[in-house]
Design a protein around this nucleic acid. Structure first.
Lengths: 139, 139
DNA sequence: CCCAAATTGATATAAAATACCAGTATGGCT
DNA sequence: AGCCATACTGGTATTTTATATCAATTTGGG
C-alpha cells in the first residue's frame, strides 16, 4: 500500500487527506510501522515536522479505522502500529524479549474468509497472523 | 488449557503456582479472557479476592511469557488479554467498534510453522489470527 | 525447623491515552 | 472569487494505564 492508495482510501471514507495526515503517512511508510504513536511523533519532530502529537494519535486511529494500520501490544505499555500492506501482516514475535520479525508467507484461505463473513455477517478487510515463540538468543 | 495444565506449565518454567497466581488463573478461565488487567482485578475483588492489583498485572505478564495468554490492543488504551487455548486463538474484530467474536477454525499450517522455525531459529509455541472487518451493525 | 530466594501488595512514580477547546484550514456553495 | 458550515489541528490539562520501589510475607529445599 503506497501513499496515493492510502490517500484515496481516506477520501473514500469521507476523510480529508490533509497535509498533516499525509506527513504521518509518509513517516509510517519511511519507518515501516512497528512503532508507538509517540515514537512516530518524535521521529517526525526530529525530522523537522510541525505536526502535533494529538494529530499523530488521531491520524493513527483514523488509519486503523480504515484498515491501513493495526495497533498491537508489544508488552511495552504502549500500542505499536503495524502497516497492513495489502490488508494483511504476518510476524513472529518472541515471548520473552518481544523481538519481532516479519514474513510474507500466508496460509489464510479465501474460503475461511468467506465462511466467516457469512457466519458472522462481517465485511472482512484484512488480517494479522501473529506467531509466538522464543527467539534464538532467548532460548 | 485448564487450570492444572497451566499450573504444570508454571512449574516447568520455574515459577511457583502460588495461591494468588492460581486465583488469577481461575478468574481468567471463568471470564474467558478478553479483559484488561484492571477489569480482571476488579472482577476478582468484587468476587471477594484479596489479590492485589500488582499481582494481577505481574501474573498476566508471567502467563504471557509462558504462552498462556497474549495481550492484544483493543483500541481502549489498555491491553486486553486473550487466553491461548492449546496455544492458539482466532478472532474477528470490528475495525469500528472493536466488537470481537471468536472462532475455532484455523488455517495455520504445520509446514509454515516448520519453515518459519527453520528460517528464523525460533521455537514456535503458538499463534493468534486476528481478522479485521466491519461488523453487521457498523456497516 | 530454618534460611535464602521468590513472591506479594501498598504506595509512589512514570508513561500513555484521552478530553477539551480555541484557533485554523478546507471544500461546497452561490 | 468569497462566504460559511464543517472538518481538522495542536496546545494544555486530565485521566487512565503501567511500572518501579520496597518492606513484609510466603515458599520450598536442606
Amino acid at each position: 500500500m503506497n501513499k496515493s492508495q492510502i490517500k484515496t482510501k481516506l477520501t473514500q471514507h469521507g476523510h480529508r487527506p490533509t497535509a498533516s495526515r499525509l506527513e504521518v503517512v509518509d513517516a509510517l511508510l519511511t519507518y515501516h510501522g512497528h512503532m508507538t504513536a509517540d515514537d512516530l511523533f518524535e521521529k517526525m519532530r526530529d525530522g523537522g515536522s510541525n505536526v502535533g502529537r494529538m494529530t499523530v494519535f488521531r491520524t493513527l486511529d483514523l488509519l486503523a479505522e480504515i484498515g491501513v494500520v493495526r495497533p498491537t501490544y508489544g508488552g511495552s505499555g504502549a500500542a505499536h502500529f503495524v502497516l497492513l500492506e495489502d490488508g494483511h501482516h504476518h510476524h513472529l514475535v518472541c515471548m520473552r524479549c518481544s523481538t519481532t520479525v516479519e514474513f510474507a508467507e500466508c496460509s489464510f484461505a479465501d474460503e475461511l474468509s468467506q465462511q466467516l463473513a457469512n457466519q458472522f455477517k462481517f465485511r472482512i478487510e484484512g488480517h494479522m497472523l501473529e506467531i509466538y515463540g522464543v527467539c534464538e538468543s532467548c532460548q
